[in-house]
Design a protein around this nucleic acid. Structure first.
Length: 270
DNA sequence: CCTGCTACCTGATGGC
DNA sequence: TGCCATCAGGTAGCAG
């Protein structure tokens, strides 16, 4: 489900609630959630390990521990919930971390999300392969130009390639391209410098707008129902197939790219 | 190296 | 109502 703005909002909201606490116990309810590693090795790595930093890399939530790092990837439906004690049996929980003052639950009924321990970020294959983070100061217009000039992929696929650019997913790629008035099918290495600058501005502004939206109201990890339910106020094209373009009144189209849906307005995105 | 395709999972939704 | 197909804010692994 979440892209970088959502994970950033989670990171910021979660930080004061768990920073400095020690993991007293790790209980894995569904071992699939810690694959490809074992529940035993995870519990061993986490036992009496202190949380020293709560941060984010791309779409990953990363807890830097006194020893190693703990990463969370939410894929489509993963979530974090906090409990005072043992969660009620009615709630699906994949893994539980008992901290000093709170219990953190990793929840993903669909079982695509993962919680993994690694010795370091460099030692984690998934993290070490990430490209420039969209919230990083390193993500400049020049950096985007370099990424795009070296790819013949359609814009949509280049933007969502985490090894090139970390943090953009299916929704914000469509949104950014709409704001930049660019057709998602355009070849990445054929943009003019002006178009590249436009796209860079669109990505940055879309991501910051989304972060603001995701941070207010603040994430509520105590409410099992809460998880960024209402994004629609900021969405301009995503999910609006057949409806009128909010800029030019054209008809929004949906196409398949890389097996996923892209939404765009053929009239004003060129 | 780059690109394209499939598998991994489950639940919600819509058409017949 | 039941059943089937499709879709979902994603990534890893593999083939060419």
């Amino acid at each position: 489900m979440p892209e970088a703005p959502e994970v950033e909002a989670v990171t910021q909201a979660l930080r004061p609630l768990i920073l400095g606490q020690t993991i007293r116990e790790c209980r894995v309810v569904h071992p699939i959630s810690v694959k490809p590693y074992s529940a035993e090795s995870l519990a061993k790595s986490l036992h009496e390990n202190r949380i020293e930093e709560v941060t984010r890399m791309g779409k990953y939530l990363v807890l830097r521990l006194a020893s190693g790092i703990l990463t969370f990837h939410f894929k489509f439906d993963g979530r974090i919930l906090l409990f005072d004690a043992t969660p009620p049996g009615s709630i699906h929980v994949d893994a539980l971390l008992t901290l000093d003052s709170v219990t953190l639950g990793f929840v993903d009924p669909r079982h695509l999300g993962r919680m993994n321990w690694h010795e370091s970020a460099d030692a984690a294959p998934s993290l070490s392969k990430l490209g420039i983070d969209i919230f990083s100061p390193d993500f400049t217009g020049v950096a985007l130009a370099s990424i795009l000039n070296n790819s013949r992929l359609p814009l949509k696929l280049a933007l969502t390639d985490q090894s090139k650019l970390a943090g953009i997913g299916n929704i914000y790629s469509s949104e950014s391209l709409w704001h930049a008035r660019l057709d998602p099918r355009r070849s990445s290495n054929e943009l003019t410098p002006e178009e590249t600058r436009r796209l860079h501005k669109a990505i940055v502004s879309t991501a910051h707008r989304a972060l603001e939206c995701c941070s207010d109201p603040a994430p509520n990890f105590r409410d099992p129902e809460w998880w960024f339910s209402d994004l629609t106020p900021i969405l301009r094209v995503y999910g609006r197939e057949g409806r009128r373009c909010r800029r030019c009144s054209g008809s929004i189209k949906r196409i398949q790219q890389g097996g996923r849906s892209s939404f765009f307005c053929p009239d004003c995105q060129r």
